[in-house]
Structure formats: structure tokens, C-alpha cells
Design a protein around this nucleic acid. Structure first.
Length: 316
DNA sequence: AACCCAGCCAACCGCATACGT
DNA sequence: AACGTATGCGGTTGGCTGGGT
């Protein structure tokens, strides 16, 4: 990046020679005043540029290369706590600079969190439809192949239904609102190729899909779940094997919110679960810890998402 | 082979604050 | 107290690069 000199001061990428001059000067004389340092060292750079080059690149102890999982976890936690206070975050990571962490957050982490249906800014699950308007098409694509929402996972629907036994009306309303948001998100983010593949489904499959993603239908499903015999409402039976992002621990209580945050550091596509809510029976309830293979709606949905992910088609 | 495009990241810019006179 | 300068910080830019067409 070579930019045109302004007032005779060079800008843009630093050359090896300039780096050597700066290092040698600081090793001999220390840092001191940057504008003065620049002149005395014979560098045709402004002091600010010298300071930045030294602090972000040349200073001894600067770590280069990818971030470890531990560093990444620390960054996520501190970002959640401090916001975009890059220098404060960097102070907790020896050898890392604020600039490097900022770049890391704005590229790798952003992509990763989107894939987890998580707001890159707040690190909370995406429920703000306004955010979707700021995403690129590629990011929409990324989001669309992610585990959009815990309610995409029938385990969560089931657990939410069980929780209805103990939660109050306000929380029920919140759940219903979240489901409506999910439905709207789907309308927005499902990319054309995925919609196209819906054409390959049978009418029955489409009907069931529609029911599942229609908030009113979904509400009635939840209502239906509450009619399941109390003998079956043993939450201990719910052992969720599929990892997924925590939705919102403050709103929805239940066993499905514990110890199931995504630990996978790669961008693997979370598996969806195969359960047909309409044919939910006692036996299926008892075997709910597994993922039945014979429930075609969610098998179909899982296949669709996987197919979509494998295509990796960016909409034009 | 040539072109396009998106992601990466070093470096710049502008503002706020600290510091010295 | 007021002013000028240096420094710190966070947002933004733009050249480079690799992958796709």
C-alpha cells in the first residue's frame, strides 16, 4: 500500500530498510518523543506512523499468526464484557495488539458468530431484524446455513413446551414473540437456491414445514405439548446431544440451556434433529434422547440445509 | 490467461485525552 | 486557566492476495 507523500512525508507500507532504521534507533536511544525520534532517526515518516509501526509490529514480544482457542475465548468473553475496547482487551492478551484484535473480531469472529446465529456486536443470539439489513449477501448465506435459532431444533420446542408447566404468562408471550421473529427471519434469510429446493418436496412435506414455521401453528404445537401426560414430563429424559448456541438464558429456562453452548471452534454446520411433532407419541417421547430416523419432515429439512451448505452458492 | 470479487490486515484518519508550558 | 503538542484509541481505508469464473 504505497500512498502518495503528503508534505514530503512518506505514507503507506513500511519497507524493510525503514523497519531496520526504526529498530536500530530505538535500541540505541529508546523511544522518547515520536516526532523527534522520526526526524533524528532519519525516517521520512510522521511520528504517529512510527509509533504505530513500532507498537503494532516491531516491538519485541509481539505475537504474530493465528489466535489460539484460549485467546479466542478470552477475546469473546472480554468483548462481551467491555465492548469495542480493543486496547483493554489487548492488555489481557500478552503479545497481542489492539489493532490485531480489532481486525480479528471484524473478520474471523464476525463470520464465526454469524454462523452461530449470534450478533457479532453483542454476542447474543440474533433477534434484531434490523441487523439483518446490514448483512452482506454472503453473510445472509452464512446465517441461512447456520443453526438459525434454537427453535429450529425440535428438542428446544419440546423443552420449551415442558417449561410451560412452570413459566408464567409473560414468558410464554416472549416465547411466542421469539417464534414470530424466527418466522420473519426465515422469510428474509432463506436464499433462493434453498427456496428452489423446496419445490422438490411433496405437498405433505411442505404443509408440515409451513405448519412448523407458522408462528400460530407453532404456538398450537406448544399448546399441544402441554397436554402430554404429566407422567412424561420428566425433564431428566431430555438429554440433548446436539450442540447449539444458547438462545437467551434470561428468557427461556429449561434443561436445554445448560452446557450446550457451542464448543466447536470450526465452522461446522450444526446438525438438525429429526422429529415429527405431529406424530409425537409416548414412545417417541421416551426415546427423545435420540434422533429418530423415520421422521421425514426434519430429515427433509436437515437434508435441505446440508445440501445448501454444500453448494456454497453465493447469491448474485 | 484474464478478469472479478471478497476477505484480510497494515496503515491511516480523526477525535479524545493527557501532558507540558 | 489557556493553549499547543503528544499520545491513545477506535473506526475506516485501500492495496494485496487467493479463489472462482
Amino acid at each position: 500500500m504505497v500512498k502518495s507523500p503528503k508534505n514530503g512525508v512518506k505514507k503507506g507500507a513500511w519497507s524493510e530498510q525503514e523497519d531496520k532504521i526504526l529498530i536500530n534507533y530505538i535500541e540505541k536511544h529508546g523511544k522518547g518523543n515520536w516526532p523527534t525520534l522520526s526526524k533524528q532517526a532519519g525516517l521520512n515518516r510522521c511520528g504517529k506512523s512510527c509509533r504505530l509501526r513500532w507498537n503494532n509490529y516491531l516491538k519485541p514480544g509481539i505475537k504474530r499468526g493465528g489466535f489460539s482457542e484460549e485467546e479466542e475465548a478470552t477475546i469473546i468473553a472480554l468483548r462481551h464484557e467491555l465492548g469495542n475496547k480493543w486496547s483493554r482487551i489487548a492488555s489481557q492478551l500478552p503479545g497481542r495488539t489492539d489493532n490485531e484484535i480489532k481486525n480479528f473480531c471484524n473478520t474471523h469472529l464476525r463470520k464465526k458468530l454469524l454462523r452461530m446465529s449470534t450478533n457479532p456486536q453483542t454476542h447474543k443470539p440474533i433477534t434484531d431484524l434490523n441487523l439483518l439489513g446490514h448483512l452482506s449477501q454472503a453473510e445472509h448465506q452464512l446465517l441461512s446455513v447456520s443453526n438459525l435459532h434454537p427453535f429450529m431444533n425440535p428438542y428446544n420446542l419440546k423443552a420449551a413446551a415442558l417449561s410451560l408447566q412452570t413459566i408464567n404468562g409473560n414468558e410464554l408471550i416472549k416465547i411466542q414473540i421469539q417464534m414470530q421473529i424466527l418466522q420473519k427471519m426465515l422469510q428474509i434469510v432463506i436464499p433462493y437456491p434453498l427456496q428452489y429446493t423446496l419445490g422438490n418436496l411433496s405437498l405433505d412435506q411442505l404443509t408440515l414445514l409451513n405448519q412448523f414455521f407458522d408462528p400460530l401453528q407453532a404456538q398450537s404445537m406448544i399448546a399441544d405439548f402441554t397436554n402430554i401426560s404429566p407422567l412424561l414430563l420428566n425433564q431428566q429424559q431430555l438429554s440433548i446431544s446436539e450442540p447449539f448456541p444458547c438462545f437467551d438464558c434470561e428468557i427461556i429456562p429449561g434443561p436445554f440451556l445448560d452446557d450446550h453452548h457451542v464448543k466447536d471452534s470450526e465452522y461446522s454446520l450444526p446438525s438438525l434433529v429429526s422429529v415429527n411433532p405431529e406424530s409425537f407419541t409416548v414412545n417417541q417421547m421416551e426415546s427423545f434422547t435420540g434422533a429418530p430416523d423415520n421422521c421425514y419432515v426434519f430429515n427433509a429439512w436437515e437434508n435441505l440445509v446440508e445440501e445448501e451448505a454444500s453448494r456454497a452458492v453465493v447469491l448474485s
